[in-house]
Amino acid sequence: MESVLERIKSIRKQKGYSHEYLAQELDISQVAYSKLEKNETKLTVERLFKLAEILETPIADLLDIKANNIYHQNNSDQAIGHQEVQNLYQENKDKTDKIIELYEARLQDKDRLIAQLSNKIKF
C-alpha cells in the first residue's frame, strides 16, 4: 500500500496539487488527507478511484500494474491474444480427451475383471 501512496504523492506533487486541494475534492479535511497519504488511515477503494479521477491518472498507474500483465478477451478471430486462448483451449481439450480415454480403458479393464471373476465363480 505504501508504494501506491508514494505514487499518489508523487503525481500530486507533479501536478502541483496541495493537500488542501485534494482534501477538498475528496470532501475530507486536510488533516484526514495528510493522514491518508502518510498511511495513518486506510485508503478505501472508493477514494482510490476518486483520487485517480482527480489526478487524471489511470488506476493501473496508481497500482503500478504493467500493461503486459493485463489480458482482454474478445470473441473475434482477429483479436490480439486469440491464438493464445485457442492454444490454451486446445491444450485443455487434449488433456481432457486423454483423461476420458484413460477412464474408458479402466472401465474396460473392470468389465474384463468382472467377467473373469464371474467365470471362476461358475466353475
Rank of each mutant, 00 (worst) to 15 (best):
1 M>W: 04
4 V>H: 01
4 V>Q: 01
4 V>I: 09
6 E>N: 13
7 R>L: 05
9 K>Y: 15
9 K>R: 15
9 K>G: 14
10 S>T: 15
11 I>T: 00
12 R>N: 05
13 K>R: 15
17 Y>I: 06
18 S>Q: 04
19 H>W: 10
19 H>T: 12
19 H>C: 10
20 E>L: 13
20 E>G: 08
24 Q>W: 08
24 Q>V: 07
27 D>R: 12
27 D>Y: 08
29 S>C: 08
29 S>M: 07
31 V>L: 07
33 Y>G: 01
34 S>Y: 07
34 S>I: 04
36 L>V: 00
37 E>V: 00
37 E>T: 01
39 N>R: 06
39 N>P: 03
40 E>G: 08
41 T>D: 01
41 T>H: 00
44 T>H: 03
44 T>M: 03
45 V>N: 05
46 E>W: 05
46 E>L: 07
46 E>D: 12
47 R>T: 02
47 R>N: 07
48 L>S: 03
49 F>A: 05
49 F>R: 04
49 F>K: 05
50 K>F: 03
51 L>G: 03
51 L>W: 04
51 L>C: 07
52 A>M: 00
52 A>H: 00
53 E>N: 13
53 E>A: 11
56 E>A: 08
57 T>V: 06
58 P>G: 06
59 I>Y: 07
61 D>C: 08
61 D>N: 11
62 L>C: 01
63 L>A: 03
63 L>I: 03
65 I>E: 08
65 I>P: 05
65 I>Q: 07
66 K>H: 14
67 A>G: 12
68 N>P: 10
69 N>W: 10
69 N>D: 14
69 N>Q: 13
70 I>M: 10
70 I>R: 09
70 I>N: 12
70 I>K: 09
70 I>T: 11
71 Y>Q: 13
72 H>K: 14
72 H>L: 15
72 H>R: 14
73 Q>C: 13
74 N>L: 15
74 N>T: 15
76 S>F: 09
76 S>M: 10
79 A>F: 03
81 G>P: 03
82 H>L: 09
86 Q>M: 13
87 N>M: 14
88 L>W: 09
88 L>V: 05
88 L>F: 09
89 Y>L: 14
89 Y>I: 14
89 Y>C: 11
90 Q>D: 10
90 Q>P: 00
91 E>W: 13
91 E>I: 12
91 E>A: 15
91 E>P: 09
92 N>S: 11
92 N>W: 10
93 K>Q: 14
93 K>T: 12
95 K>A: 12
100 I>Y: 02
101 E>Q: 08
101 E>V: 01
101 E>N: 03
103 Y>Q: 06
104 E>Y: 01
104 E>W: 00
105 A>L: 02
108 Q>M: 04
108 Q>D: 07
108 Q>W: 00
111 D>A: 13
111 D>E: 15
112 R>P: 00
112 R>G: 04
114 I>Y: 06
115 A>N: 02
116 Q>G: 05
116 Q>W: 07
116 Q>A: 11
117 L>P: 08
118 S>K: 14
118 S>W: 06
118 S>Q: 14
119 N>V: 04
120 K>H: 09
120 K>P: 02
121 I>S: 02
122 K>L: 05
123 F>M: 11
